[in-house]
Amino acid sequence: MKLLTCPVNGARPVSEFTYWGEIRPAPDANACTDHEWADYVFNRNGAPGVKREWWCHTPSNTWFIAERDTEKDRVMRTWLPGSEA
């Protein structure tokens, strides 16, 4: 069973979690070009590597951030938004 650690509820089966995508800084919609905005809206970075992602522990609706190596599918750490030092 693959486990993921929720910062509030602890280690749980990954089936209790939902993946909500990589955290990507949004460009300034008023200042960016149409090309930059379309790139942000439609394109995703599929290259493997260490990424920060949104995850949600579904039974408790706890949203948190996971730093995950998508090449090795290994989660380095998880934390609540706003709690990172």
Binding site: N9, R12, P13, S15, E16, H57, T58, P59, S60
Partner: peptide, 12 residues
């Protein structure tokens, strides 16, 4: 208490 999933249903 625990918030988890039971037979696929989110439970407390």
């Amino acid at each position: 208490l625990a918030l988890t999933s039971m037979v696929g249903v989110g439970v407390t």
